[in-house]
Amino acid sequence: MADNEIRDAFIVGLRNAHAMENQALSIMKPQLSRIENYPEIAAKLEQHIRETEGQIIRLEDVLEGLDEDHSTLKDMALSFTGAMTAMGHTLAGDEILKNSFANFAFENFEIAAYKSLLTVADAGGFTAGKTALQSNLEEEEAMANWLNVNLAAVTQKFLLLREGGATAKI
């Protein structure tokens, strides 16, 4: 593959990752605003929202270092999609579980995206962006791991609250 084609693939991937992280914010922020009975999840979401905001800045820095910018249209489109996903879960009686499943899936999607971007960075010799991408990957892996480890406890707490007559509000 020609160097300019690798560069183009890298730029598209970075723009997609930027939009993906904005989508993540549009999913997590509405979830956080609704949480009442799961303070451990609220705390983790708050932490990951801050991490995600940092990831967006890292991606913008990498793009700027390549004299490129992010795609506002992609950012808006994926943010809208994320907000609609989060809103759809509010109708479910098991909203916290649906959110947990969706968050776990999305974190793994982000992990795959960053692993792919790191491969493209290697192929194109874009060493300046690798540290930022590796940091983003590690934060996504940590969040996915936390969700994985805590899914059973969230489900058990949901069942206990449901048994006690708790409402659908998470």
Results as ranks from 00 to 15, higher is better:
A86R: 11
K98C: 04
L78H: 15
G93H: 07
N99Y: 04
A86D: 07
G88P: 00
A105L: 06
K98Y: 02
F80K: 08
S116L: 06
A77V: 13
E107C: 00
L73F: 06
N108S: 09
N103L: 06
F101M: 10
S116V: 03
D69T: 15
G93K: 13
H70I: 00
T72I: 05
K115P: 00
F109Q: 02
K74H: 13
A77K: 12
H89Q: 05
E95F: 08
Y114E: 01
A86H: 08
H70A: 08
A77H: 09
G93A: 01
N99L: 00
L97F: 03
M87D: 08
F104Y: 11
A92I: 08
S79H: 07
L78E: 14
S79P: 02
S100W: 13
L97G: 04
H89R: 10
E95Q: 12
T81Q: 12
D69I: 14
T85G: 09
L78M: 13
M87C: 02
L97Y: 04
T72W: 10
F106M: 02
F109M: 07
L73Y: 10
N108T: 10
S71R: 03
F80T: 12
N103C: 06
G88W: 12
L78A: 11
I96H: 11
S71F: 07
I111E: 14
L91A: 10
M87G: 07
L97K: 14
I111L: 06
A83R: 07
N103T: 10
D94Q: 12
S116W: 06
G93R: 10
D69E: 02
L78W: 15
T85C: 07
N108D: 05
G93D: 12
H70D: 03
A112Q: 05
Y114C: 01
A86W: 07
D75H: 04
A77F: 13
F106C: 00
A112F: 02
H70L: 00
L97R: 14
A86P: 11
M84N: 01
F106W: 05
G88Q: 14
E110L: 03
A92E: 03
A105D: 14
E110D: 09
I96T: 13
N108F: 11
G93F: 01
M76D: 13
N99C: 01
E110W: 03
G93V: 00
A83S: 13
A113W: 02
A113V: 14
E107I: 00
M84G: 01
G88R: 10
A86Y: 09
S71A: 13
S79I: 05
L73C: 03
G93L: 01
K98F: 02
S71T: 07
L91T: 06
S71N: 13
S79R: 05
T72N: 13
F106K: 08
A112N: 02
F101Y: 13
A83F: 10
N99W: 05
S100P: 00
M84K: 09
H70Q: 05
L97D: 03
N108P: 05
G93N: 13
Y114Q: 04
D69G: 15
T90R: 15
H70V: 02
A112C: 05
A113C: 12
A92W: 06
